[in-house]
């Protein structure tokens, strides 16, 4: 048994890195609103735990990913009605470089995530002081 575990682990790690691209993902429904100081993205992520959310902001591209494991053994379950599928959520947005990436923060409640994207100082109207010498 010990050998089996040792052999299986590297395999599952490879699967984990790849499945985010290979597995089919659902597009979460979102609201995006712009306030004076920030952009607020609200996303429906039912069944996603906080630790299974992966948010990346790189070079103006915001990527949102929520990992959802099957809640039932789908092959062994006797379904009477199946109106929706259960799986990962994925969506990306090009936000440009107007966001202060260090101050991005997210909250999750009842399966809804609120992602706050504060606007960078550089794109807020700025007064330039002219120094006299």
């Amino acid at each position: 048994m010990a050998n089996e575990t040792a052999i299986k682990k590297p395999e599952s790690e490879i699967t984990r890195t790849e499945h985010t691209r290979d597995r089919m993902a659902y597009t979460p429904q979102v609201d995006i609103l712009e306030r004076d100081e920030e952009l607020l993205l609200v996303a429906d992520l039912p069944g996603v735990r906080a630790e299974d959310i992966d948010i990346r902001y790189e070079q103006g591209l915001l990527t949102l990913q929520g990992r959802v494991e099957p809640r039932q053994d789908e092959a062994a379950t006797n379904y009477l009605l199946r109106e929706y599928g259960v799986g990962d959520f994925y969506r990306s947005f090009r936000v440009g470089e107007g966001v202060d990436s260090d101050k991005i923060r997210a909250e999750l409640k009842n399966g809804v995530m609120e992602l706050h994207l504060p606007k960078a100082e550089a794109i807020k109207p700025k007064k330039i002081t002219v120094r006299s010498q």
Binding site: Q29, V30, I32, L33, R35, L40, D44
Partner: peptide, 13 residues
């Protein structure tokens, strides 16, 4: 609906 905010997307029912 938030007053004074501009909605870029409103998909959530």
């Amino acid at each position: 609906l938030e007053e004074g905010a501009c909605y870029h997307r409103r998909e959530r029912g």
